[in-house]
Design a protein around this nucleic acid. Structure first.
Length: 381
DNA sequence: AAGTGTTGCAACCGCAAAAGT
DNA sequence: GACTTTTGCGGTTGCAACACT
């Protein structure tokens, strides 16, 4: 471990953080926020550089970190995302609530890579090693060596092909569904971790689902609430009690929902009637269908705007939803929907996530990995 | 028990992009 | 527009803990 140049100049501490340092940093940030990181050490009374403080906070002290070992589902998701995104750890970590890019990166380097190799897969290209060997045999010359070397630093060729192909498939139905379930589930988990009291309506707003209404196939986006949470929906998230039991960071995470909160219908279940905005051609990023951090929201939205603004209505009308062959590939996911009758469509997310987890768990890891995975490089660059 | 190798992870480095002046 | 500062990211390293001999 080296030391930042600024640390040399100012003779700042390096290496592991002591509990006292952690406490100082936590106290300072919870009271004042981090503001400009370069000023944090001075204000917090730390002999560290701002960069070091930022890293310590993001990777270790942040209250919304999950910690602990990665679940099999998380590992599978990392593998899938890596096939699309390559070594873009921050983007991968953004799909794993409570996990940091550093954690994901470490897991990949220390564990997942080995597992993939044991399964006969190249962790860089996600291709079978035999396939790569064949390619190497058939392609000779230095130009090919350069290509292979370059390929190692890129996401899978499938993803690249899709990226270069104007007719590349849209994001897959199951991928988005999975993302919903995971992030949705996490929102609940975060809530429960942060506030052991009764679930009030306010914080349950993010616990509502933004669902694809596959029954009507009308490309309608339905915002739904659990029946238990329809009674008291505050008009503003600012009404949240900012006591010690609720981290300001969790509130920050959910703030975006405030912007799309529709007037409470007063009825249980479907409140789509009041969601004109949601039914418009809004980008999927604009209403935080995924409970990412606001900063992530901005980042992804920007990327999406710059590259290709995938809209929910576009997604719902995507060819793969009409393509029989592809639909067969997503039979399991369709089943999740089809088994839910319209009148009982608003099943709790737990049943959905249970289905999903069950689905994942019944697949051996390798089978899961080998499952056709259509990437969506358009969105994530 | 002591020495050596391996592993997991926290933290640093260097670079690039963004933001500020 | 040029320059400086800040922020964010991916790659890498150092070290403590563990496993093995």
């Amino acid at each position: 471990m080296g030391r930042h140049s600024c640390c040399y100049k100012q003779k700042l501490r390096k290496g592991l953080w002591s509990p006292e340092e952690d406490e100082k940093l936590i106290n300072h940030i919870t009271k004042c926020g981090h503001g400009c990181w370069s000023s944090v050490p001075k204000l917090a009374g730390l002999q560290r550089c701002g960069k070091s403080c930022r890293l310590r906070w993001i990777n270790y002290l942040r209250p919304d970190l999950k910690r602990g070992t990665f679940s099999q589902d998380e590992e599978n998701l990392i593998i899938q995302l890596h096939a699309v995104l390559g070594n873009r750890w921050s983007q991968i970590a953004a799909q794993l609530p409570g996990r940091t890019d550093n954690e994901v990166k470490n897991l990949w380097n220390s564990s997942i890579k080995k597992k993939l190799r044991q399964r006969g897969l190249d962790p860089n290209t996600h291709k079978h090693l035999s396939e790569i060997e064949n390619e190497e045999k058939t392609s000779k010359g230095s130009s090919d060596d350069q290509r292979i070397a370059a390929e190692k630093t890129k996401p899978s060729s499938v993803a690249i092909d899709n990226c270069n192909n104007m007719a590349a498939p849209m994001p897959t139905h199951d991928f988005f569904l999975n993302r919903f379930v995971i992030s949705h589930e996490n929102a609940t988990t975060s809530f429960q971790q942060l506030n052991s009291g009764p679930k009030t309506g306010s914080l349950m707003i993010p616990d509502g689902n933004l669902f694809l209404d596959s029954n009507s196939k009308s490309s309608e986006i339905v915002h739904e609430f659990n029946s238990s949470m329809t009674t008291t929906l505050p008009s503003s998230m600012s009404q949240l009690p900012l006591d010690n039991s609720i981290s300001p960071f969790s509130v920050n995470k959910f703030q975006k929902w405030d912007a799309c909160t529709v007037s409470n219908s007063g009825s249980t279940g479907n409140v789509s009637s009041g969601s004109a905005e949601l039914q418009s051609n809004c980008s999927i990023f604009e209403y935080n269908a995924f409970p990412w951090e606001v900063s992530d929201y901005g980042k992804f939205k920007k990327e999406a705007d710059v590259q290709q603004n995938i809209r929910w209505t576009d997604y719902l009308q995507a060819p793969f939803l009409r393509d029989e062959t592809v639909q067969l590939q997503h039979q399991n996911d369709q089943d999740i929907y089809s088994k839910t009758k319209p009148e009982t469509r608003f099943t709790t997310e737990s049943s959905l996530s249970a289905n999903w987890h069950q689905n994942q768990q019944t697949l051996p890891a390798e089978d899961l990995y080998n499952k056709p995975f259509q990437s969506f490089p358009v969105t994530f660059g």
